[in-house]
Design a protein around this nucleic acid. Structure first.
Length: 370
DNA sequence: GACCCGTGGGC
DNA sequence: TGCCCAAGGGT
């Protein structure tokens, strides 16, 4: 033979199973995160709070969610209160958290629970799955955490932990089915909720995407990926496409009394139902000045504010050049935009509007340009 | 399965 | 800076 083969040391490894889960649950009881929607290990939490937190946490970090969660439960302490609210209020309170269809579905779900279930959340995955905004993950999470049902929510954390525990080599998203089955195999009948939350805490604090802390991991002895030294490389993900750029011109119209012209966006699609600063179409290239003026909401003299506002969405990057104008308070100008969707909002009231972050950026950029 | 749908933070 | 990431759902 040639040079001695440098094989990786293979420790005897039992596949993850009930003992792994027991070790994980012990770790959870000692190290669990204290979060405002949790009631404590071995306890079932308030279904309303679990549901609200799970919707907010969809693709959103715990840190970003906490202040919104506190604000919502203070204002609407139960599902009946939320059902009695106006959608407009809910969108206002949701502004800044992103993925605004969640806010619409949140309201629709509260309405449905009050209407169809007498204000009591159903406890099974199948029933929960029928409600607006509740998909397979959230249905399983609520069933397990709030009701103690044996359900297996699989989020990004759990996908990562499971793919490492079993050294799943198949790339995502194709591997989702296998990962789900493996996670279900581990789920204990008694403490499915604690198990799910323990897996999520482990993923958030130990089994992180980069630089996982295998040395202090409670289930490291049972982890196939750690044994092979490939934990950080898992899960393998399919390549992503480059993010295209779009360009437009936004028209910040300020009235002499300090009001700003805003318009409500269509209910469906990007930033659905939220307020916006009127703008041109967002296209693949910057609109010409001629094109821009054709879509201006009023005929007036515009000042181009130096430097575009750049905002990155999930699937494209947006550059908006802000045109700014001051108009008189009387109606001595013509409003070309769809008037019924437009409103004047005083500067001091902007914070209470359903304004997405990108539009707050546009307004701040334009108003600071003086 | 593939797209669309926000935002802020970490590195 | 640019990319990745975060307790996904709807279509």
């Amino acid at each position: 033979m040639g040079a001695p083969q440098k094989t990786q040391k293979q420790l005897p490894l039992r596949p993850a199973g009930p003992d792994t889960v027991a070790a994980l649950l012990r770790w959870y009881e000692a190290e669990r995160r204290d979060l405002p929607w949790r009631y404590g290990p071995r306890k079932k939490a308030d279904p309303y709070r679990v549901w609200l937190s799970e919707i907010m946490l969809q693709q959103t970090t715990v840190k970003a969610v906490i202040p919104y969660f506190q604000k919502f439960v203070a204002r609407w302490p139960n599902v009946a209160a939320l059902a009695a609210a106006q959608l407009e209020e809910v969108l206002q309170q949701w502004a800044g958290l992103g993925y605004y269809s969640r806010a619409r579905n949140l309201k629709a779900c509260a309405d449905a629970v009050v209407r169809d279930f007498d204000g009591v959340f159903p406890r099974t995955e199948v029933e929960l799955r029928e409600l607006p905004g509740i998909g397979p993950y959230t249905a399983a999470a609520i069933a397990a955490i709030a009701f103690g049902e044996k359900a297996t929510p699989v989020d990004g954390n759990i996908e990562r932990v499971v793919s490492r525990l079993f050294a799943v080599q198949q790339p995502l998203p194709a591997a989702k089915t296998e990962i789900r089955n493996l996670a279900a195999t581990l789920t204990p009948a008694r403490r499915a909720g604690d198990f799910a939350q323990a897996m999520m805490d482990l993923g958030a604090e130990i089994c992180t995407p980069k630089n996982p802390s295998c040395l202090v991991c409670p289930v490291q002895p049972d982890c196939a990926a750690s044994a092979r030294g490939i934990a950080e490389t898992l899960p393998i993900k399919a390549q992503k496409l480059a993010r295209p750029s779009r360009f437009g011109i936004a028209f910040l119209v300020q009235r002499e009394d300090g009001a700003v012209l805003l318009r409500q966006r269509p209910e469906a699609g990007l930033l659905g139902g939220m307020l916006e600063v009127p703008s041109t179409h967002w296209g693949d290239a910057s609109p010409s000045k001629r094109e821009a003026l054709r879509s201006a909401p009023v005929t007036t003299s515009w000042m181009a504010v130096p430097g575009p506002v750049v905002h990155v969405f999930t699937h494209f990057r947006l550059e908006l050049v802000v045109y700014r104008a001051i108009v008189p308070v009387d109606a001595s100008f013509t409003l070309w935009a769809e008037q019924d969707r437009c409103r004047w909002v005083h500067r001091r009231d902007l914070h209470a509007q359903a304004l997405p972050s990108v539009m707050k950026k546009v307004i701040a950029h334009g108003m600071n340009a003086e």
